[in-house]
Amino acid sequence: MSRVMSLEEAVEANVRDGDTVAMEGFTHLIPHAAGHEVIRQRRKRLTLVRMTPDLIYDQLVGMGCAAKMVFSWTGNPGVGSLHRVRDAVENGWPRPLALEEHSHAAMANAYEAGAAGLPCAVFRGYIGADLPKVNPNIKTISCPFTGQSLSAVPALRPDIAIIHAQRADRSGNVLIEGIIGVQKEAVLAAKRSIVTVEEIVDDFGQRSPNACILPSWTVTAIAEVPGGAFPSYAFGYYKRDNAFYTAWDAIARDRDSFAAWMKANVLEKGPEAFAAHSRKRAMAAE
């Protein structure tokens, strides 16, 4: 059964140095508050898994939390490069970052295989592409029935999956709405999971019988962090702060301005700071 606790306690109990960590959310519901907490608790040597490393991993990499990144697209969507990730890859600052690179289809299939308890994912992919030449974790397999040549990648089985969702109920079930990405697969593939939510409610009330719900017994820890996806968004709560994504480019371009921003907004703040984003954005949306 999931347990409701503070974000500090959830990270303290579930994220360890050297862990393989998947923080998911496909543009939507990115668990930024949880990412900040991992930085504040100074976790080290993490293998960071995520289909689309954007600001959340730029921050973790820039603060020296990561040794490796497994990904399929990395950048600040619609804006440009991730300067902290590039600095780590190109200059080893603040420490070197190993990369394991896939396509989206491969990553999505690999999470699904992890959730399904399979050792690998099989799909039709990478045909004529160069990634299999540089990533030894991409292999070819032939269909035992038709002989068709297909691609295979290892299943993703993170030590811990961290996601953000709209609501949990008093029994510890989690409801995810909108662009649901690979969050369900990531949680079911992982050994442990932390879910931050906009709010904990008595009851989910009216919902579709096919709503995307993670039952309490599939989740390790739940923490209520309103605004916890900012500057990403929470469908039904607040919008994506596109202006912040644009502003991040200048903040992260320079090591000193990045360090100053992280000190003022992460190291010297707590998860409760995110609530202001939620309230402000919600009012602006009205």
Binding site: T52, F71, S72, W73, T74, G75, S81, E101, S103, H104, A105, F123, R124, G125, Y126, I127, A129, L131
Partner: peptide, 9 residues
Amino acid sequence: LPGGGGAPE
């Protein structure tokens, strides 16, 4: 550069 994303498939 950002990488392939969905493009290879």
